[in-house]
């Protein structure tokens, strides 16, 4: 029995010199669904919220409150990034429920792109909050001797962010595929339920870690003010 490698992504077609792989197409579909859905839901927002508006406001408000509590800063500049990361990851992780759809987060390139965006956002917000010099000086906290370690941590935590998400989603997809090939119909359903839970938790963790990284970048004194257990495990 030959099992297809979960580490490879298939090229569906090419546009000019650009090969378009399957995760990219899935991501486009998710983008379309999210954009159209949000446009449809936020068409008419009023002072008296309807049921859907109340749900949307609940999601946005909870996200904003999480940002405020974790980063101890006004959530306005960070809300689109963090909220989009969470919503996109949730939808992408759960997209495996649709038959024939492989979640784009099960491909290493997508996770790498997300980790890269968080990395870039960390630098961008850190420089914006502290200035280039101030942000560089924040690596020497609490001592200049720790500067190389902090610099290395900047890359390793992005790498661990990528590998964590990739490993969790990919292993779930891989396990379901293996069980499906061994036992057949209906047996992988409990595994799929577990995969839903894992997907939601991983989306939350990704967003929370992004908050922690950006929050530590914009606060000068303490590089990692919140959630030290996250730092330890990364």
């Amino acid at each position: 029995m030959k099992i297809a490698s979960p580490l490879e992504s298939h090229i569906l077609f090419t546009i000019g010199p650009v090969p378009i792989s399957q995760p990219v197409v899935t991501t486009w579909g998710i983008m379309a669904v999210l954009t159209i859905g949000c446009w449809f839901l936020t068409r008419r927002l009023g002072l008296r919220p309807t049921r859907t508006q109340a749900a949307l406001e609940l999601v946005v408000d909870v996200t904003a409150r999480q940002i405020r509590e974790t980063m101890e800063a006004e959530p306005q500049p960070y809300l689109p990034l963090i909220g989009t990361l969470f919503i996109f990851l949730l939808v992408a992780n759960w997209s495996s429920l649709l038959p024939g759809v492989e979640p784009p987060t099960a491909a290493l390139e997508t996770d790498a792109a997300l980790a890269l965006i968080v990395f870039g956002a960390t630098l961008w917000f850190g420089v914006r909050a502290l200035g280039a010099r101030g942000y560089l000086r924040s690596f020497a906290q609490p001592s200049i001797l720790l500067a190389p370690l902090n610099l290395v941590e900047l890359f390793t935590r992005s790498f661990s962010l990528m590998v964590r998400l990739f490993g969790n989603v990919m292993s779930g997809v891989f396990m379901i595929g293996v069980v499906l090939s061994l036992a057949g119909l209906l047996v992988p359903i409990p595994l799929m339920a577990l995969e839903m839970l894992t997907g939601a938790v991983q989306a939350y963790i990704f967003g929370a870690l992004a908050m922690v990284f950006i929050g530590s970048a914009i606060s000068e004194t303490n590089p990692s003010p919140k959630a030290p257990n996250h730092e330890v495990s990364s």
């Binding site: 936020t42 009023g46 406001e57 946005v60 904003a64 809300l79 689109p80 909220g83």
Partner: peptide, 8 residues
Amino acid sequence: LFRPVMGA
């Protein structure tokens, strides 16, 4: 999403 909802 975020701008309209936050605006609301």
